[in-house]
């Protein structure tokens, strides 16, 4: 499957007009110099020759070097530098979405039709409807530009001397006990993570609310109530646990949406992650970066879905026994 996808991505990129020769030479290029450059880079070869060359190198772990995002750097290195950034951002975003979405969804269901319910349903609608980049600009305007409380972009302040260990800036700060660096990296994460969290938050909230409503109407809840069980026990053991099943699926699926959202969020916040590299790669026709990054994104997506399927076993005992 990865092979087929790699061929598709490869062919599609080369079907786009323009190309790296044009991007590299800019308005100083001439037809002659562009042709010479294309030849030098092997871009004048038939596409299947290019593909097999690419495949041959890829099998040895060489995905080529960037032409536009970080020109000259190995694409694998760029990915390894940037992947932790995107993971940090996505993990915090999904944690925020879960931490806010599930309790709110649960409360909204408990007080169905009340003011709180109506208000939070409305808020979640905005979360779905407002494009993430707009929200990102808005957050920046309020919290960075107007109030000056949070940094408006980047992963860390430029003049902090931080030691890099894993590439996860917050983790690095903790590991090396450079607390100011860890804190600074965390503060830089906040705005983009909140912006990015709105996508999964809205969905998680609504699914939780719907699931809890369903379960509240189940016979076993009524039985538990009539048995005279404590309210807290019913809620924890019978309602929440059963309602979590669809929510877990949703969270898994939302990780795919996070990847897409990260492209915009990272661009807006100048956050040097995978998403920003993808956006820049398109602008600058950076074939090697696009080829590898799109492939890896696809593989990650497939893996996450597999993990979601496996995690059913944890929440749904029926699957374990089958």
């Amino acid at each position: 499957m990865v092979l087929v996808l790699s061929l598709l991505v490869f062919a599609w990129l080369r079907a786009l007009p323009g190309g790296p020769a044009s991007a590299l030479l800019g308005d100083r290029g001439t037809e002659e110099s562009r042709a010479a450059l294309s030849k030098q880079l092997g871009l004048d070869q038939p596409i299947f020759v290019q593909y097999f060359r690419f495949l041959g190198r890829a099998l040895t772990g060489n995905f080529g070097n960037s032409t536009g995002v970080q020109p000259g750097d190995s694409v694998v290195d760029i990915f390894l530098q940037r992947f932790p950034a995107t993971i940090e951002l996505s993990v915090l975003a999904i944690l925020i979405a879960i931490a806010v979405g599930i309790p709110l969804g649960y409360l909204a269901a408990r007080r169905r039709g009340g003011l709180f319910d109506n208000f939070s349903v409305g808020a979640s609608l905005i979360g779905v409807a407002v494009p993430v980049f707009f929200l990102a600009y808005l957050l920046k305007y309020v919290f960075a530009t107007k109030l000056g409380w949070l940094p408006s972009l980047g992963r860390q302040a430029g003049d902090i001397d931080a030691t890099r260990v894993t590439g996860f800036f917050v983790l690095d700060g903790i590991l090396t006990q450079e607390w100011d660096a860890a804190w600074d990296a965390f503060v830089h994460l906040l705005l983009p993570a909140v912006a990015l969290a709105t996508i999964p938050f809205a969905v998680i909230f609504r699914i939780t609310r719907a699931a809890v409503l369903d379960v509240l109407n189940e016979d076993y809840v009524r039985t538990a109530e009539s048995k005279g069980l404590l309210g807290t026990v019913i809620r924890r053991r019978h309602v929440l646990r059963n309602a979590m099943l669809p929510v877990v699926t949703t969270i898994g699926l939302q990780i795919g949406a996070l990847l897409a959202g990260a492209v915009l969020t990272e661009k807006v916040f100048g956050f040097s992650g995978v998403g920003e590299a993808l956006a820049l790669g398109f602008e600058r026709r950076d074939y090697p970066v696009l080829q590898m990054f799109i492939l890896v994104a696809a593989i990650v997506y497939v893996l996450v879905n597999l993990l979601v399927d496996l995690s059913y076993a944890l929440v749904d005992p029926r699957i374990r026994t089958r």
């Binding site: 600009y137 530009t145 408006s152 972009l153 430029g158 807006v268 100048g270 040097s272 602008e283």
Partner: peptide
């Protein structure tokens, strides 16, 4: 003491970074 270049490909983001003092 130092001269730092911060890479911000997005134009609006550059403007906001200036306004917020980054």
């Amino acid at each position: 003491d130092k001269l730092v270049f911060r890479i911000i490909p997005d134009e609006t983001a550059r403007k906001q970074a200036l306004q917020s003092g980054d």
